[in-house]
Design a protein around this nucleic acid. Sequence first.
DNA 1: CTCTTTCTGTTGTATATACAACCGATTCGT
DNA 2: ACGAATCGGTTGTATATACAACAGAAAGAG
Lengths: 219, 219
Amino acid sequence: MKEFIPELMRTKLFAGVGGEDVLSMLTCLGARLHTYKKGEYVLRQGEHLSDIVVLAEGSLHIQKDDYWGNRSILGSIGVGEIFGEAYAAPESGALLNDVIAVENSSVFFFDVKRIITTCSSACRFHTMVVQNLFYAVSEKNRGLVQKLDCISRRTTREKLITYLSEEAKKQKSAEITIPFNRQQLADYLSVDRSAMSNELCRMRDEGLLEFQKNRFRLC
Amino acid sequence: MKEFIPELMRTKLFAGVGGEDVLSMLTCLGARLHTYKKGEYVLRQGEHLSDIVVLAEGSLHIQKDDYWGNRSILGSIGVGEIFGEAYAAPESGALLNDVIAVENSSVFFFDVKRIITTCSSACRFHTMVVQNLFYAVSEKNRGLVQKLDCISRRTTREKLITYLSEEAKKQKSAEITIPFNRQQLADYLSVDRSAMSNELCRMRDEGLLEFQKNRFRLC
DNA sequence: CTCTTTCTGTTGTATATACAACCGATTCGT
DNA sequence: ACGAATCGGTTGTATATACAACAGAAAGAG
């Protein structure tokens, strides 16, 4: 697990905590490291989760398939991001979504209870991690509100513009890379792929944007 | 503010804290009480918020109006529920939504920093409140995911079924009261009111449900 | 390198939704 | 009790989206 200390230090959860302290907290928090191959499930809908999940390497999608195989993508998790905060409370019930590795991935699991139940003074930074976790959840919350804002647009075009603008703001550039291919983007925006593809090309023809694969430039 | 102690004790934020302790914490946390008449704005999009908002009386809607007056309702806040957790982090930016009183309402404001920065041992229950807050945010998070699940359905009928089923689960009954009239429900589900009205009546004619005003019974 | 699979864009058709206008019923204020 | 305003349901039309089927391009496997 040692090899991921630099990655962990860059996460929101361990922001402000030094390398040695992170290392000692891995024990203190009962961290477990798992690796997943591309396409493997990290978590499945219906399971119960009492851990905070931190992605150290790779990329995950949070998604859900219904009876007819229609897929809906809730979001994407990049390196350093966390998942599972929504299930931190003791009686939070079963997972509402699958979590799947879209690349080979390395994932840390931390027992929530051991995070929020501050231990003896052995871990100097424990309090800071608790606060970090709180801020992270708070931020996730805002992210979900923004996704709702995007999804609740009436037309495919509006959804695309909202999503891409938001990404541009996050990535602080008019040229952005998105973590989805066309089908995945459609599943994320809850629209039909071919209709979306159509709309994207129309927007390109109107000079609103350019793209190649999952790389977009807003004009 | 004293008169609302019983209400505050029933909130998630103060769960497990006794009446006297709640009272003393009102001072400790720098609580402020405001009242709003039906239709008044409690918070406006673009403002900055550094408080956790607790509704002691009445009912609030979290919503957003775009340039053309199209309204989108993110959610409803009932007595005892909280708002503002998403803006708890120091650099969380401006409010993304308006918060409006749909009835005459009484609202407590608590400075977030004073909640999460545990004070001297004077407040015995401070630690518990911090944990309560964390759980509340976590739960909000799950609520948002469920709303996303609902909104991302493709058809109006699916949205209605998802929303009403979810409410039935929450209210633990097949007969439910929703905090919206037709227009508000449409704004919540991001669909056209008349189309939704149509669909509701069709579903009623098919025997799926019954309703009168904002009271529904699922069959 | 070649074959296979996945990905993306294109087209046409069926369907669902948005939009607008209207009306009766209910609620509200005075 | 009265008029005004709000609310909910209905209808018709225009439009956008879903769905299906296909083809060329790109990526991946052997």
